[in-house]
Every structure is written in structure tokens, then in C-alpha cells.
Computed example of a mutant assay.
Amino acid sequence: MARPKKGQQFEYVVYKGDDIICHGTAEECSEKLGLSLKTIQRLATTAYMNMLRKRKESDNPLIAVKIPVDELEMSE
């Protein structure tokens, strides 16, 4: 995946297992879920995903997918 452009804006989709539990900016998801902004951002990192793969006991992990706003606007 290409590196984000400076100033690029993102939306996040937060999943618990297969269920979408929240979507919006990192700030909106943080507020809706009662988590810190850094936690929402971390849920979308490759390092976090790799950590989950190493853990065997996590059936329904909380994860986030970061989507550039440009892509959302193009799909409308």
C-alpha cells in the first residue's frame, strides 16, 4: 500500500469480529467507542494485525480499517 500523502484525510471502519461497530473519522470513532484517538489509529496498523495473528485465543478481535477519504468520494 502506498504511503499516505501529507494532509490526507481518512475514515475508519471498526470491526468486532465480522460485525461493523463504528465508522467515521478517528475522532468520531474514539468518541463513540470511548477509546483514545491513538487506540483507534493503532487498531488499523500492520503491527497490530501481525500481533493478532500471533495470538491464538482471539476469536473476535477489535480491528479498524483506514480508508482514504479520496477513495470514498470516488465510489459515490
Rank of each mutant, 00 (worst) to 15 (best):
Q41V: 10
M51A: 12
M74G: 04
S30L: 03
L62Y: 02
M1N: 15
S36N: 10
L72K: 01
M49D: 14
V65W: 05
F10V: 00
L43W: 02
T39H: 15
N60H: 07
K38F: 06
R53K: 12
A64D: 00
T46I: 13
K66C: 12
I40F: 02
P4H: 07
Q41S: 03
L62Q: 00
I21C: 13
M1A: 15
M1S: 15
G17L: 11
Y15V: 00
V14P: 03
E76T: 09
H23L: 07
R55W: 05
E28I: 03
D70F: 13
G34E: 08
T46S: 15
A47R: 11
G17R: 00
V69L: 10
E71I: 03
V69Q: 08
E27P: 04
A64M: 01
L62D: 03
T39C: 14
C22W: 02
R53C: 14
D59Y: 13
T46P: 12
A47M: 10
P61E: 02
E71K: 10
M1G: 15
K38G: 13
G34C: 08
T39P: 06
A47K: 11
L35N: 14
I67V: 08
D59K: 11
M74Y: 14
L35K: 08
L52Q: 13
R55S: 05
Y48F: 06
M51W: 07
L43H: 03
G24P: 00
P4L: 02
I20T: 07
C22E: 06
L62V: 06
A64F: 03
E71G: 13
L52R: 11
V13P: 02
L37A: 03
E28D: 06
A44Q: 02
E31T: 15
P68L: 04
H23Y: 01
I21L: 08
Y15M: 09
M74N: 12
Y12G: 05
A44N: 08
V13R: 03
E11S: 07
A47H: 05
Y15K: 14
D19I: 01
R53Q: 13
L43T: 03
A26M: 00
